[in-house]
C-alpha cells in the first residue's frame, strides 16, 4: 500500500521536529512534508513555483498562527478551491480558544486538535491521529 502523504503547515521548526519525532516513535510510514506558512502551503498544494514537482497530499495538518497567511485564511482558501476542497484538513494548534474551534469547524475543518503541553500526551495525541488518519480513514482518490 502506498504511504499516506501529509502536508504539515507549521512555522515553528521545533514543532515540526517534534512531530517528525513522534511519527518516527510510532513507526508511522507517512510521507511528511513541512512548510512554514499558509502562502507556502497553498503553493505546495497548487504545485506553484518551487513546488512544481510536489506530491499531492492526502491530509493537511494546519497550524493556526503563522506569519503572512495564517491557518484560518489558509483553511478558507483550501475549502473555496474546487481543486482542493475535498482535502481533509486537521487543525493542530496551541490554541484552546472557543472562537478558533468554532471558526475552524465553520470553515469545514475535519478535526481540531490542541497540542498538549505534556510531551507524553503529545506523543499519545500523535499516535491517535496517526492510527485514525493513517489506517482507519478512507480518502477520496486524488489525481497525482
Amino acid at each position: 500500500m502506498k504511504p499516506i502523504t501529509i502536508l504539515l503547515a507549521e512555522d515553528s521548526p521545533e514543532d515540526v521536529e517534534l512531530i517528525r519525532e513522534a511519527f518516527d516513535y510510532h513507526r508511522f510510514s507517512a510521507d511528511l512534508h513541512a512548510v512554514r506558512d499558509g502562502v507556502e502551503a497553498l503553493a505546495f498544494l497548487r504545485r506553484e513555483g518551487e513546488y512544481a514537482d510536489a506530491p499531492t497530499p492526502d491530509l493537511l495538518l494546519l497550524d493556526l498562527n503563522m506569519p503572512r497567511k495564517d491557518g484560518r485564511e489558509t483553511l478558507a482558501e483550501v475549502k473555496a478551491d474546487p481543486a482542493l476542497h475535498t482535502l481533509p484538513v486537521v487543525i493542530l494548534t496551541t490554541s484552546t480558544a472557543e472562537s478558533d474551534i468554532v471558526e475552524s469547524y465553520t470553515r469545514q475543518a475535519s478535526a481540531f486538535l490542541t497540542k498538549p503541553v505534556d510531551f507524553d500526551a503529545f506523543l499519545e495525541l500523535i499516535r491517535q491521529l496517526g492510527e485514525f488518519w493513517l489506517t482507519a480513514v478512507r480518502y477520496p482518490t486524488r489525481a497525482g
Partner: peptide, 21 residues
Amino acid sequence: AEVAAHHLQEPVRRATVYAQR
C-alpha cells in the same frame, strides 16, 4: 487574551517538552 493562550503558551509548551525529554 488570545495571545496568552497562543503566543505565550507556544514557547512554554515547547520548553516543557524539552525539559521532559
